[in-house]
Amino acid sequence: MTRTWASCRPSPERGFTLLELLLVLALAATAATLVLPSAFSALRAAEERKLLVEVESLLTRLPTEAAMRREPSQWQALALMARVPDWPSSWQLRLESPLAVDARGMSGGGRVQLWHGERLAQEWELRAGDGRPLRVKPSETDAP
Rank of each mutant, 00 (worst) to 15 (best):
E125D: 09
E71P: 01
R94T: 13
A42W: 07
E13A: 15
Q92G: 05
E71G: 11
E48D: 15
A46H: 13
K137D: 15
P85W: 00
L21T: 13
R61Q: 14
A82E: 15
E54F: 03
L43S: 12
E47H: 14
G129I: 07
L36M: 08
P10I: 04
F40M: 14
L80T: 06
E48N: 09
A46N: 08
A100E: 14
R132T: 12
A79V: 00
L134F: 03
A46Y: 01
A45I: 00
W75A: 09
S73R: 10
E96C: 03
Q122K: 05
R49P: 02
K137M: 08
L80C: 03
T17Y: 06
L99V: 07
S97G: 11
A66N: 06
G131Q: 09
L51H: 04
A66K: 07
V55E: 06
A29I: 03
S97Q: 15
R135D: 10
G108P: 00
R44S: 14
R61W: 08
T30W: 05
S97D: 14
S89M: 09
S97H: 14
T64R: 04
L51E: 05
Q76W: 00
R49F: 00
G117E: 14
A77K: 00
E48V: 06
L23D: 04
A32D: 06
V84F: 06
E48S: 10
E125Y: 00
D86F: 05
Q74S: 15
L59E: 04
W91T: 03
G108F: 09
L21V: 15
M68N: 13
P138A: 11
L18P: 02
S11N: 08
R119H: 13
Q113F: 04
L80N: 01
R132Y: 11
L126T: 07
S139F: 02
P85H: 07
G129Y: 04
K137S: 15
G15F: 08
L34H: 02
Q113E: 15
A103Q: 06
L22H: 00
L78G: 12
T30G: 14
T33W: 12
V53P: 00
Q113W: 05
P63C: 12
F16R: 01
R49Y: 00
E56C: 11
W75N: 09
S57A: 15
E96A: 15
